[in-house]
Each structure stands twice: as structure tokens, then as C-alpha cells.
Amino acid sequence: MSQAHLLVVEDEVRLLNSLCRGLGEAGFAVLSAGSAEAAARAVADGEFDAIVLDLRLPDRDGLELLRELRAAGNATPVLILTARGALDERVAGLDSGADDYLAKPFAFPELIARIRALVRRRGATPQPILRIADLEFDTIKRRARRGSHELNLSPKEAMLLELLMRNAEQTVTRAMIAETVWGAGYNDFTNLIEVFVNRLRQKIAGAGGEPLIATVRGVGYAMRHVR
């Protein structure tokens, strides 16, 4: 996979430096912008796989910049970073065309996982049937099969499986699972997520073969097919 290009827009220089360094070390090609104006110029000049956008910028509101991008037909995945954490602001961000949202202070591995998910989603065309090894999930009929064996999944388990399969070979963080399956605010119930993942794991393993769902210590889970 070629290096993904990121644009990081953040006015707090010290945070911007850490972000660029960390994301660079994680294998991304990073371009930084300290203002909405600089960001607009960067977007006009080049193509990015994803944009990390701070909402509070000295010259303009980040949401305004985002709406302009979307209005101009730019579909680059955008992850919003903000110190505002209220739910309505999160909704406003997603309404303005953001693809994901992280409240400061965030965990850096979480940021990387989310950016990877965004970049991957951009490349992939939506497939109605997801496959990994001999596990198959039909996203329309909401049915999963392992080989010829049909798995009996609850709606929440199906959502969890879809999330993991869509991000196959990638780490899916607990927060991402909580938000996708239960909605925002369930992040703290780590036990709940563990119980669900274990139950799903058992159902998948029960049909025979490798367990497929690996635990990424301290961060989340990943669906992996070890050949």
C-alpha cells in the first residue's frame, strides 16, 4: 500500500508538532496547516487521503471550512478534532460533512486507528458481502456464515461483526465499537464491549476454524486472517 497523504489543520503549534511527528512515524505523509486559510490553499493544491481538522482556528471556524470543502465537491474524509465535546457539537460536526470526530484530549493510537479506517474506507467501494477467510457477512440481509454453517447473530453482534470486517486487518478501537454499536457515551463500559466481542468470538469459533478476532492490548480489536 502506498503512503497515505494527510493534511493536519491545527492552530496550537505544540500539538501540531507532536501530531505531525507521531503521524509521520506511523507511516503517513503529513502536511500541516496552522490556519483555515493555509488549509484551504493546501487542499486546492493537492490531493489528500484524509484531513485532520481542528475546529477552533484563529481565522475561521473549522466547520465553515469543512462546509465550503463539501460544497465545492471535495469528498476527502475529514476527522474533526475539537476541545468542545458536547453531543450537539458532535452532531453539528457530522452534519457539516465530517466523517469522524475526536474530542481533545484523545489517545494517539485511537487517532491513528480512526485515520486508517477513514483512508481505507475511501479506497474501498461499498461491498454488500464482506469476506474474511471462510467467514462471510451479508450486509443487506444481515446474515453471517462460516463455510456452510449459518451463524445466529443478534442485531448488535451483526453490527459489531460488520464494523470489524469492514476494517479487516486494522485495529478497531473500543471507542469506535461503542460509538458504532451503542452510540456515543458508552465508551466507559469496556466490560460490555469485551463481553460482546467474546460472545461473537465464540460464535465464530464455534463453527470451527481460527478465531479471527484478535485483541489489540489497550486499544481495541482487529479482525485478522492468519494464513
Binding site: 496550537e12 507521531g22 465535546g85 474530542a103 493510537p109
Partner: peptide, 17 residues
């Protein structure tokens, strides 16, 4: 939140390798 984010990201990136 902002100083905390600077602090946390700085530390996490530093500890990353």
C-alpha cells in the same frame, strides 16, 4: 482540554518508539 491534549499526544508520540 487543549493543554491536556498537547501533553497526552506529546507523551504518547514520544513513547511510540
Amino acid at each position: 482540554r487543549t493543554p491536556l491534549a498537547i501533553l497526552r499526544t506529546g507523551l504518547e508520540v514520544t513513547l511510540g518508539q
